[in-house]
């Protein structure tokens, strides 16, 4: 069963997260282990598995980035776990850009210049949104290679933003 099927949904890139949350609550009640306390072991185990599967599915589906990676996976490319797919080459120019920006960020970190780092992260967050939109468009027309490429970019941008967030937290403490 796919994460979408667990929620009785067709695979989709855009989801109403509020409605998804409501469905999670309804289904969680339906399969709550307490309701099966008197049942036989097999039924209890099945209910527990269902609950775990529901929660796992929700975690993936509520996040637009993870959802897009998941749709790509359903289309045959597991970018997050498959070593072969992970090796899918990012263009050299893009890697050069990533390296350059990471070095800039490293220098800002050394100077504890959180403000400039945040400004960089803001710009990169915009690029991340646009890459995600392009990935979704590519998935929509079944262009999995382009989708994988754009989601690879999303991953790099996310990593960068996370670094800045870590720096901000460090500066606060």
């Amino acid at each position: 069963m796919t994460h979408f099927e667990i929620f009785g949904l067709a695979p989709a890139l855009d989801l109403d997260v509020k409605a998804l949350e409501q469905k999670l609550r309804d289904l969680s009640l339906e399969f709550h282990p307490d309701r099966f306390a008197q049942a036989d072991a097999r039924t209890r185990l099945a209910a527990l598995e269902k609950t775990t599967a529901l929660n796992d599915a929700f975690k993936v589906l509520k996040d637009p980035v993870r959802r897009a990676f998941y749709v790509l996976k359903l289309k045959g490319i597991d970018l997050e776990n498959d070593a072969a797919a992970a090796k899918a080459k990012m263009p050299l120019e893009f890697l050069e850009e990533v390296m350059e920006r990471r070095e800039q960020l490293e220098a800002l970190k050394a100077k504890r210049d959180v403000e400039k780092a945040r400004a960089m992260a803001d710009g990169i967050e915009k690029e991340r949104s646009s890459a995600l939109e392009q990935a979704k468009a590519a998935l929509g027309r079944d262009d999995v290679n382009e989708a994988a490429h754009q989601l690879g970019r999303v991953k790099y941008f996310t990593r960068f933003v996370e670094e800045v967030e870590a720096l901000e937290e460090e500066a606060l403490s």
Binding site: N81, A86, V98, M99, L151, Y156
Partner: peptide, 13 residues
């Protein structure tokens, strides 16, 4: 040599 893995967002030179 500049390489990267989109699985984790790593870049290695």
């Amino acid at each position: 040599g500049l390489v990267g893995a989109p699985a984790c967002g790593d870049v290695m030179r």
